Simulated scan of single mutants.
Amino acid sequence: MAVFVYGTLTDPERAATVLGDGLQYEFVGRATLEGLHRVDGRYPTLAPGGSVDGRLLAVDDAGLERLDRYEGIESGLYVRVAVPATSGVRDDRCWVYVGEPDRLDVDGTWPGSGPFRDCVQRVVSRRAVVVRRTE
């Protein structure tokens, strides 16, 4: 499965540290996430509007579980959402990690109320958010 990475995991050495130890993974190209833009803080995250360049990382289920731990999914630091992907991406969707702005001490506003995951999912499902391979 494909994961769009736009921060520390774009670095091959960091990805090897997180995903090493026998897990199958590979960078499969550069991509642009349209409809969300990068916001920098303690760790990078995303906010509605604009676009951000990154890389596509192909992982298996074990790799996705390791990425979830790295991104702090269980503690609510980041959420993982499925974003539609265009041709050139192995699947018709791509996973994207979005950090909770308050927890990362960044200025990133998400419309709506309720749990952060729900706010992100509503934006992704209602706006033109898509991952496009660029090479």
Rank of each mutant, 00 (worst) to 15 (best):
P101T: 06
A47M: 06
G41D: 04
P115C: 01
V131K: 02
R66I: 08
L23E: 12
A15M: 12
V39W: 07
G20K: 15
R69M: 05
D61E: 11
W110G: 01
A2S: 09
V89Q: 07
Y70H: 14
G108A: 15
E100Y: 12
V89R: 00
L33K: 02
A58W: 10
W110S: 00
D105C: 03
L19H: 13
L64S: 13
R127N: 12
D118Y: 11
A128I: 02
L67H: 04
P101L: 09
Y70C: 07
D60I: 10
V106S: 08
C94P: 01
R69C: 05
V39K: 06
P84K: 07
A16H: 12
A2N: 11
P111M: 05
C119G: 10
F4L: 02
G50M: 06
R127W: 09
D68T: 09
E26N: 12
A128C: 08
A62G: 03
A85N: 08
V79R: 03
W95Q: 12
V83R: 00
D11M: 03
V89L: 06
Q121H: 09
T109Y: 15
V130F: 02
L77Y: 09
V81K: 06
V98G: 07
V28S: 13
L9Y: 01
T45K: 10
R55E: 08
D92W: 10
R93A: 11
S87T: 11
L36W: 02
D105F: 10
D118P: 05
R127C: 08
D118A: 14
V5M: 06
S87I: 01
Y70E: 12
P115Q: 10
V83W: 01
V59W: 09
R69F: 05
E65G: 14
S75G: 07
L104P: 13
R122E: 12
V39H: 09
Y78R: 09
G72Q: 02
D61G: 10
